[in-house]
């Protein structure tokens, strides 16, 4: 007759638990721990990469900003240089015009005095010059 052998059942249950205990102690725990560590390491690496990429992007942004600032500063330098050069050129041209005007004023003055002095001198020597020409032509 088919019966349940209590003692055998108990023995089997006991051996199962002993086996489970031993497996848990010697196999499952180290394996789970190893897997967890591995997972952690992998995640750590990925996290490290993500952080590095974030930092890279941030650095790129910063560098771009710095470059843009430099370009802006360069443009300012160029604009400032151009403005200064233009101002300097204008000043030189103004100065040249002023000097030219002064030269012309002096020349006009000189021409006036030349006309006065020359006219007077010719008037004084007119007779003498006419005489000299007449003498020359009628040698």
């Amino acid at each position: 007759m088919l019966t349940i052998n209590i003692s055998e059942l108990l023995l089997t249950i006991l051996s199962f638990f002993v086996l489970m205990f031993l497996l848990n102690k010697l196999l499952f725990k180290p394996v789970i721990s190893f897997r967890a560590q591995r997972q952690k390491r992998v995640e750590g690496c990925h996290e490290q990469e993500r952080q590095a990429e974030e930092k890279l992007a941030e650095t790129r942004r910063e560098l771009d900003e710095r470059r843009a600032l430099s370009l802006k500063e360069a443009e300012n330098i160029l604009v400032q240089g151009r403005t200064q050069a233009q101002a300097e050129a204008d000043r030189t041209t103004r100065q040249a015009h002023a000097e030219a005007e002064s030269t012309m004023r002096r020349a006009e003055e000189e021409a006036r005095s030349l006309r006065e002095a020359g006219g007077k001198a010719i008037e004084e020597k007119r007779r003498q010059l006419a005489q000299s020409l007449a003498d020359r032509l009628c040698r």
Partner: peptide
């Protein structure tokens, strides 16, 4: 900027000389 200033100075000097 320096080159441009020099060029501009040269041109303005030449212009001034011409005037």
């Amino acid at each position: 900027s320096l080159r441009s200033a020099e060029r501009s100075a040269q041109l303005s000097c030449a212009h001034a000389e011409s005037i």
